[in-house]
Lab assay of single mutants.
Amino acid sequence: QTIHNGDQTYHYDNPEEAIKVAQKLAKIYNLTVTVKGNTVQVH
């Protein structure tokens, strides 16, 4: 599972963990989380 947060990319073995982290980032920075296959984008 990969999270793209602007210019930063994070890799997680656990998809659920990746989505949790993405949602935390989204709340902190007031962003949107988009899940596309194995990629979670925060923008």
Rank of each mutant, 00 (worst) to 15 (best):
V40P: 00
H11Y: 14
D13C: 14
Y12H: 02
E16F: 07
V40S: 00
Q1E: 11
Q1M: 10
A18D: 00
K24V: 12
Y29D: 15
Y10R: 04
K24C: 15
A22R: 01
T9R: 05
H11Q: 09
N38T: 07
Q41G: 02
N5Y: 13
Y12R: 00
K36H: 14
V21E: 10
L31I: 12
I3L: 11
T34M: 04
G6W: 14
K24Q: 11
I19G: 04
K27V: 06
P15W: 10
Q41W: 10
Q41D: 02
I28P: 00
V21K: 04
V42L: 05
Q41Y: 15
E17G: 02
G6F: 13
N5I: 14
K36Q: 13
G6D: 09
Q41T: 15
T34V: 09
V42I: 11
K20N: 06
L31Q: 05
T34G: 01
N14D: 09
Q1I: 13
H4Q: 09
V33F: 01
N14E: 03
V40T: 01
Q23I: 12
N5T: 11
D7E: 07
I28S: 04
A22D: 00
I3F: 05
I19L: 14
V42W: 02
T32D: 09
N14H: 04
V40Y: 00
L31D: 08
N38Y: 02
A26D: 07
Q1S: 12
T34D: 04
D13I: 06
Y29I: 14
T32K: 06
I28Y: 14
L25I: 05
P15H: 14
I3Y: 04
Y12S: 02
P15S: 06
I28E: 14
T9S: 07
N30M: 06
K36E: 12
N5K: 11
K27F: 08
H43P: 02
I28W: 13
D7C: 15
T2M: 12
E17R: 06
P15V: 10
Q1D: 12
T2G: 13
P15L: 08
I28N: 08
H11M: 10
K24M: 15
V42M: 02
D7T: 13
I28A: 04
I28K: 10
A18I: 02
N38K: 04
Y10H: 04
N5W: 14
K20H: 06
K27Y: 09
N14G: 05
D7S: 12
Y29H: 15
K27N: 09
Q41F: 14
V21S: 07
Q41V: 15
G37L: 04
V40I: 12
T32W: 06
E16T: 07
Q41I: 15
L31R: 02
H4L: 09
Q1P: 12
V21M: 14
Y29M: 14
K24P: 00
T32R: 04
T32H: 12
Q8Y: 15
Y10E: 02
T39C: 13
V21R: 04
T9C: 15
A26G: 06
L25T: 00
G6I: 11
K24W: 15
I3T: 11
G6T: 10
N5R: 13
P15T: 07
Y10I: 06
Y10D: 01
K27R: 10
Q1F: 08
K20P: 00
N5D: 12
V21G: 07
K20S: 08
I3P: 10
K20I: 08
H4D: 07
Q1V: 13
N38W: 02
Y29A: 15
G37Q: 03
V35H: 02
V21N: 07
K24G: 04
N14P: 03
L31G: 08
A26I: 09
H43L: 06
L31H: 14
Q23E: 13
T2D: 13
I28L: 13
N5P: 11
I28M: 13
I19F: 11
T32I: 13
Q8I: 15
Y12F: 15
H43I: 08
Q8H: 15
T39N: 04
H11R: 06
G6V: 10
H43Q: 06
Q1K: 12
G37I: 03
T34W: 03
V35M: 02
I19Y: 11
I19W: 13
V21P: 00
T34C: 09
Q23K: 13
H43W: 06
G6E: 10
D7F: 14
A26M: 10
I28G: 02
K27Q: 11
V42Q: 01
I3A: 10
V33C: 03
H4S: 09
A22V: 03
L31T: 11
V35Y: 01
D7Q: 07
T39E: 06
Q1N: 11
